[in-house]
């Protein structure tokens, strides 16, 4: 369980989050949605201790994120963000292998190698394993970084817009893999999404944010309503039900 209690954040004089509290249960796929600048990425960064906590408390499985040693936390929680690293000439296999760093500190065991092979296979990267990152397309890179997070083997995965650069086929594949992680392995996935139809189709729970506050939280049926979406995005859009799926044509 991720417990967020009374968290506020101000960066360079600009208030980003206002007294945010939420409880994200274990074993669910949780989508963070909301307009640009709502504070989704900041909240995710706070949970992953990428930004120091200014006020309030955040615990993951009871571990306070601001006081738990980084290495200990890295075996419980991982985050994938858009990051501009310097190392472009790492192979996909090497990158995914660094996901094992919190466990092996660089000395790969046979078990680590099994995890790496499984991650490469799961994300359809086995054939690209020998390629360096600078020889990959944006979508392939994206998959390699999510595969590294997967390979880290943590109970909690925080993913900041993992569908960026992915085409429909890989977008769907990514969401199915994440669903699979939750259903079969009991992992918890918190994901920032911009496409509310993906959120509607795959999430167990949706946390809706606007202007640094959580304005709604619950199952997709409860959060994704015409009124609720207007409160978030500022315009009305129809919410259709096709079979057991919600479908929201938000582009008129």
């Amino acid at each position: 369980m991720i417990a967020i209690d009374g968290v506020s954040l101000t960066l360079q004089g600009t208030p980003i989050l206002h007294d945010v509290s939420a409880t994200l249960p274990k074993g669910e796929l949780i989508a963070l949605i909301g307009p640009n600048g709502a504070g989704k990425s900041s909240l995710l960064s706070l949970v992953a201790r990428l930004i120091p906590l200014q006020s309030g408390r955040i615990t993951v499985d009871g571990l306070p994120v601001d006081r738990t040693p980084g290495r200990r936390l890295a075996r419980t929680l991982t985050i994938m963000r858009q990051d501009t690293g310097l190392a472009a000439r790492l192979t996909v296999r090497e990158l995914v292998g660094f996901g094992r760093f919190p466990h092996s500190r660089g000395r790969l065991t046979d078990e680590d190698r099994r995890h790496i092979a499984a991650a490469l296979a799961e994300f359809d990267l086995t054939e690209l394993a020998g390629r360096t990152l600078d020889a990959l397309s944006g979508g392939q890179r994206q998959r390699a970084f999510v595969a590294m997070a997967f390979c880290q083997g943590t109970d909690y995965l925080l993913l900041d817009e993992p569908l960026n650069n992915l085409d429909m086929m890989y977008g769907r594949q990514m969401m199915r893999i994440l669903r699979h992680l939750v259903d079969r392995q009991g992992r918890t996935v918190v994901i920032v999404l911009h496409d509310i139809n993906y959120a509607a189709a795959y999430a167990d729970r949706i946390v809706a944010m606007k202007d640094g506050r959580i304005i709604a939280s619950g199952p997709p049926d409860a959060v994704l309503t015409t009124d609720g979406l207007e409160a978030m995005y500022g315009y009305r859009m129809p919410v259709h039900r096709i079979g057991d799926r919600l479908f929201i044509p938000h582009h008129d």
């Binding site: 960064s45 992953a48 201790r49 990428l50 980084g70 290495r71 200990r72 936390l73 890295a74 075996r75 991982t78 985050i79 994938m80 963000r81 990051d83 501009t84 690293g85 310097l86 190392a87 790492l90 990158l95 660094f98 996901g99 760093f101 919190p102 500190r105 660089g106 970084f145 997070a149 880290q152």
Partner: peptide
């Protein structure tokens, strides 16, 4: 190994502990 991970950036490095 730690230096290679640092070269992946602050966020990725922190995420890896």
């Amino acid at each position: 190994d730690a230096l290679t991970i640092a070269s992946l950036g602050r966020d990725t490095g922190t995420g890896l502990g």
